[in-house]
Amino acid sequence: MLKHLQTFAGHQNPVYALVNTDQPGLFLSAGNDKGVVEWSLANMAFVRVKIPVQSSVYCLHRYQHQLFIGERSGAFSVFDLNTSKIVARVNAHTKPIFDIQTIQRKNELLTTGEDGTVAVWSLVDFKEIYRFQVAYDTVRCIAVSPDETEIAFGCKDHLIRIYNLTDYSLKQALEGHSLPVTSLSYHPNNHYLISGSRDAQLKIWTLPNYALLQTIPAHMFTIYNIAFHPNLPYFATSSQDKSIKLWDAENFKLYKILSIEKAGVGHTHSINKIIWSADGKYLISTGDDRKVMIWEFNEA
């Protein structure tokens, strides 16, 4: 179902972020190199260093033709993919930014990170609209419900906090993980929320009430990413245990383990980020070993 196709070895330091561009077959990676790198899936090759940045990059987020770059410094930059220019740089937080998301129906951008606050920005002029304290320590990840009515925050204090997107009021706090929550993703059809943690467990929360449906002992160490396939009922997880796992999104059956031990090829250190290509043909992974790996997907 997933097999190793290519390894890119251009980075000199750990890599934390991946994102597809607005051009089919192109994606970007970034980390401690202080540069955002462009790669081609069509040619399976390095393209160029797309953007120099001032500090380490912990997250990348694209909305339409704009790329948002979240930095260790607490600032984020806005890069216009059409003009290849930085159009804004905002000193958003006093500590590193770990996640950035957009709320399309409100035309808003959200940033969060180590200071525990969530800042809301206008996508028109990148001015701050609102700021609220979600936790008194790190907020590691954000997940936006597909209907954009609710938003989930994964926190270092072991909690998942659910907020209403209409007014950013707290709806409820989910207690289940025993260690910091490090990954979150809503099912594409809003069937459930799935969370991953430093406790190495996946938890499935039913919607709309967020009752705990199932706990899966998924990995050996921290689960850093949960990525749903763009059009088929699968999701992948990546972990500090150097493995990627492919799961059935309907019954949570484990289909595939990608690791050096199981597949003979894989990452040698923590896998910090995974994404699917826009067409779903490839899974892309990266991490502390400085490598970007391409895995070809076949449903058969």
Rank of each mutant, 00 (worst) to 15 (best):
Val139Ser: 02
Met220Gln: 14
Lys50Gln: 13
Ala263Trp: 08
Arg161Val: 11
Val37Phe: 13
Leu283Ala: 07
Tyr16Phe: 15
Ser285Arg: 01
Ala218Val: 00
Leu110Gly: 12
Leu179Ser: 13
Val15Tyr: 00
Thr21Ser: 15
Lys106His: 14
Lys273Leu: 00
Ile257Phe: 03
Pro146Tyr: 00
Val87Cys: 13
Val120Asp: 09
Phe132Trp: 08
Asn231Tyr: 07
His61Trp: 12
Gly35Cys: 14
Thr94Gln: 15
Thr149Val: 04
Cys155Asn: 12
Thr222Lys: 04
Lys85Gly: 08
Asn189Asp: 11
Leu213Thr: 14
Thr215Cys: 00
Val36Lys: 09
Ile223Ser: 07
Leu212Thr: 07
Leu184Gln: 05
Met293Gln: 11
Thr21Ala: 12
Tyr58Met: 08
Ile194Ala: 05
Thr138Ser: 13
Tyr192Arg: 07
Asn107Ala: 07
Leu246Gly: 01
Leu232Phe: 02
Ile142Phe: 07
Trp39Asn: 00
Pro230Lys: 06
Asn107His: 14
Lys253Cys: 11
His61Gln: 13
Lys273His: 07
Gly287Ala: 03
Pro208Arg: 05
Asn251Lys: 13
His4Arg: 09
Lys106Thr: 05
Asp125Cys: 02
Ser243Ala: 14
Phe132Ala: 03
Leu67Met: 04
Ser55Leu: 01
Val134Tyr: 08
Gly25Trp: 05
Val292Trp: 09
Ile257Tyr: 02
Ala92Gly: 06
Ile226Met: 05
Ser178Gly: 12
Leu254Gly: 01
Phe132Glu: 05
Tyr130Gly: 08
Leu26Ser: 06
Gly70Pro: 05
Leu258Pro: 02
Ile294Asn: 01
Val265Leu: 02
Asp157His: 00
Gln101Arg: 15
Lys34Gln: 15
Ser145Trp: 06
Arg62Leu: 10
Gly176Lys: 06
Arg131Tyr: 03
Lys262Gln: 15
Gln6Cys: 05
Leu18Cys: 02
Ala211Arg: 15
Val53Asn: 03
Lys85Asn: 13
Tyr210Lys: 07
Phe126Arg: 07
Met44Glu: 09
Ile244Tyr: 04
Ala236Arg: 01
Gly35Asp: 15
Ala300Glu: 15
Leu5Gly: 09
Tyr224Met: 07
